[in-house]
Design a protein around this nucleic acid. Structure first.
Lengths: 113, 113
DNA sequence: CGTATAGTTTGATAATTGTCAAACCATAGG
DNA sequence: CCTATGGTTTGACAATTATCAAACTATACG
């Protein structure tokens, strides 16, 4: 029952244009809005009722991860995503906060334990 | 020698995802960085040494304008672009500032008079 | 071991996008 | 009126992207 981190860019390698592009898609922005409320979610929960196929959602998870917006850790069969708040704040101060305050999840999301 | 404003979205119609997408292109981000320093520029000056054809630059001006990032006014033959700082601040507080502080123009830009 | 669960990968497709080149339009100025 | 200037539009093309469906992988559990 070990825990693994999926590969993701180092903080200093996060590119502004890639972050902005990742967040410029409504589906991905919704995922990020949910993560900002829930703190940490499995892909299944994050992708619930998004209106896209699960493979499409999976593609969006990868886009967010490769842009440096989320980090994913695997525990057993589940993959938990969470926002890289501190890394983004260090790299682009205020950016994520300003985006999040303009965004609210369309769907109620379970609070983290 | 009258002055005309080109059509652009009302402040309340500016969409977050469209702003983010507009700013997610390196060429457009460079234009915006220049505008943030120069305050107001003609298209020719804004597009100087961007590394793209002038028709491509023109396409980027339109993208920025339609996303609500810049406003363009025409005086004679010249078109002056400037950032919609106040409108963006009203709509998405802190967003433009955080992006601008992560960006600096690659090229020295003449200060506005 | 066999099966169900969680999520990814691999086509395939349609739509969007960034780019250049050439033609075009509008205004200023001789 | 003619021409040069500043910028846009149109057409073409290659690359990227959002999407679905189906196949696949890996882990947990009985």
């Amino acid at each position: 029952m070990t825990m693994r981190l999926l590969p993701h860019p180092a903080t200093e390698d996060i590119e502004l244009t890639e972050v902005l592009r990742a967040l410029s898609d409504p589906v991905r922005l919704e995922i990020v809005a949910r993560l900002s409320v829930a703190g940490e979610m499995t892909c299944t929960v994050a992708g619930d009722d998004l209106g896209v196929h699960k493979s499409t959602a999976s593609h969006h998870y990868r886009t967010l991860r490769e842009a440096g917006v989320v980090i994913t850790k695997q525990e057993g069969r589940l993959k938990y995503m969470s926002l890289r708040r501190d890394d983004l704040q260090a790299r682009f101060p205020g950016l994520l906060d300003s985006i999040l305050s303009a965004t609210h999840p369309r769907l109620p999301v379970p609070a983290q334990p």
